[in-house]
Amino acid sequence: MNDKLITFIKDKYSTQEFIPLHVPSFTAKEKEYVSSTIDSTFVSSVGKFVDLFEKKIEGYTKTPKAVATVNGTAALHTALYMAGVRHGDLVITQALTFVATCNALYHMGAKPIFVDISMDSLGLCPIALEEYLEENAYLDMDGVCKKKGTNESIKAVVPMHTFGHPVDLDKILRICSVWNLTLVEDAAESLGSFYKGIHTGTIGEFGALSFNGNKIITTGGGGMVLCGSESIGAHTKHVTTTAKIPHPYEFYHDEPGFNFRLPNINAALGCAQMESLDTFLIQKRNLANDYESFFKGSDYIFVKEPNYAKSNYWLNAVICPSVEARETMLQETNNANVMTRPVWKLMHRLPMFQNCYRGHLKNSEWIEAHLVNLPSTPIDKVYGS
């Protein structure tokens, strides 16, 4: 299997050289737009491309207001802050996620509660979420969700759309409504993914996107807060700056600001990348279809989008039949200059999160032991699927 997989991937990318997991793709537009910011001297947080990039994301995702930030972690931090999460609060999320999800909570002084994932989406499982709350939470007289035994406040639920595959948001929204919890979507990996025709990150009260160098489009480093209303978006924009009240020369700041602003030079890169997004999505879907065909009839299961969703297939993944098969695939592909990787180590196994509350994590632990990510860079020509 692994020799055939290596040959398949090298044929797809038409090279015998090292094949990375995911790299950005650029056209002449990126150089043109970035050069124009240098010529204008507006390379920092002021410039036309920041506003234009926000408008492009608003138009694509249909969110009322998008607010650009310096990276995806800053976007999630801001979204959680605007959702009312504060020091000492608890937030329910998944253990199978990139560490940035939990880092944002840690630096706010909030603490994660880890709930299991669904095998359909590899994201937060509504059944596990509901079971955890019924067993471990209660609503106090003011309707605030509290942790049994400690009376700590549980403020929000943060599902992460793993590898771009949307979680079952309708069911999670219903649970959040029953328990008075705010839904904040970690949509860092899912630009171009849709849940029942609605873009991820726009269904909860807030969403957070990432434009890191390995994402489907990149600004080098960058993120975006997706806000549920224009008024909330205006306040979100305010706190991502230094919260300065506009004035020709006076400096007056009316609340603590994060200074999480995205520089204009990065936004210029993002504007150019947005012009290629539809092409990238087609190329990624073609590649995913080819991977699915390759593994069909074998003991290996290609990870497909849930039937209620349309995924961007940001990172392709395969579930191996055994832990030994996973290890062998990782070793043999990487030894052959084809980069593959295991899924992230579960968050509760990391020293800073090992004492966090958690429910059963049987699906998360099984996926951790069996999943391998495959090269997923968009291929700039259409292959048969």
Rank of each mutant, 00 (worst) to 15 (best):
V338P: 02
D11W: 00
V99I: 12
T73F: 01
W344L: 04
I38N: 01
N289S: 12
E185I: 04
L21G: 08
S121L: 08
V85H: 04
N355V: 09
T73L: 11
S229A: 00
G149T: 05
E324T: 15
D254R: 03
T27E: 09
L173R: 01
T63C: 15
I9G: 06
A79S: 14
G201F: 12
S376Y: 03
K56T: 06
E131A: 14
I92W: 01
N355W: 09
V343I: 09
C145I: 04
P126S: 06
L281A: 09
Y106D: 15
I198Y: 01
A95K: 06
L287W: 03
V46Y: 15
L262D: 03
A336G: 14
P246R: 06
G88W: 07
D299F: 02
S210R: 02
N307I: 15
D380F: 02
G228R: 13
L96W: 03
R285E: 14
M339I: 08
T93G: 11
L330V: 12
K48V: 07
E189N: 05
K31E: 14
E17T: 08
S364Y: 04
F206M: 13
K284R: 15
K111A: 12
L5S: 05
D116T: 00
K12L: 14
R358C: 04
T97K: 02
E368D: 11
D140L: 11
H161M: 08
A83Q: 10
V167W: 01
T240Q: 07
L269R: 13
D290I: 14
P166Y: 06
I282K: 13
A68L: 13
V157K: 07
V318F: 01
M352L: 15
F211S: 06
N151L: 04
K171C: 02
L262Y: 01
T242Y: 12
